[in-house]
Design a protein around this nucleic acid. Structure first.
Lengths: 136, 136
DNA sequence: TATTAGTCCACCGGGTTGGTGGGCTAGTAT
DNA sequence: ATACTAGCCCACCAACCCGGTGGACTAATA
């Protein structure tokens, strides 16, 4: 399950995608419009900035904005960043791989099944971007 | 990600599937063969028994055994039981559904995408059983 | 220079995860 | 009936994560 943090992140990013051509957007505006706890959102946006997804401007007229165009930011990237691994097992993860003790990955049926699940999931989230989340 | 508990559960169930025709299997035997902490495994097996997946016999010659044939126990059932929701959002879950506030599920692009992910995943785990995990 | 708005840090309660220990009880073989 | 066996149950544990808050600081801008 995606954490609330991840859900907030997607809401905020979706909002910023809509406002992509309008210059910086205040944290407080996002928080109000998307009903996200202000201080919590602050942390999330800062994290996204450090990960090079967002950029910000301080002082009057400041705020947050996407560093790239919405269609250039993949959903998979955001999930990995904010939520962690997409795979169901460490030993099938591409970005958070950990060797699986007591399960030689060559002959482990669970492993093989989870590879399938992973690929089916990635097939979706790697091919969608923030642009696809810009509804309403 | 599947919890360690879930991974242990699958290992234990896979072992019990192999031994399906051999009568009750000791917790201690499973723990030893599959390298699972004994007491932790005890809890897991008890939970699976209460969920009607396993049955047990007490006293000498006792142990645990599958209540149904391996091919009659779906992987999806076990995941839901031990790990929880398979979906990435509560509002797209079939078995753990929760209404999504501030996101009318009719026009939420994230929701729609996660429905796709859910279906792709279920397509795999609903169609595999413990029989498919009986390797080696 | 005053104001604005992001930055940073510390803390918090509560829940989950991954266990462990000990005693009890019910079933089984003898 | 008895002894033994093996599951059952309860309580507790440390460590970590989740969701969130408060306050001070700093950098940019008008």
């Amino acid at each position: 399950m995606l954490s609330k943090k991840s859900q907030y992140a997607f809401k905020a990013l979706s909002y910023l995608s809509q406002k992509f051509n309008d210059g910086p957007v205040l944290i407080s505006e996002i928080a109000r419009k998307k009903k996200i706890p202000l201080k919590f959102l602050e942390n999330i946006l800062l994290e996204l900035k450090k990960a090079d997804i967002l950029d910000s401007k301080k002082g009057k007229g400041g705020g947050y904005f996407l560093k790239k165009k919405p269609e250039q930011i993949k959903v998979a990237t955001i999930i990995r960043l904010v939520n962690g691994p997409i795979s169901m097992l460490p030993c099938v993860s591409l970005y958070f791989y950990e060797r699986c003790k007591n399960c030689n990955e060559k002959h482990c049926a669970l492993h093989d099944m989870m590879v399938e699940v992973r690929d089916a999931t990635l097939d979706i989230v790697e091919n969608r971007t923030l642009r696809d989340l810009m509804d309403e």
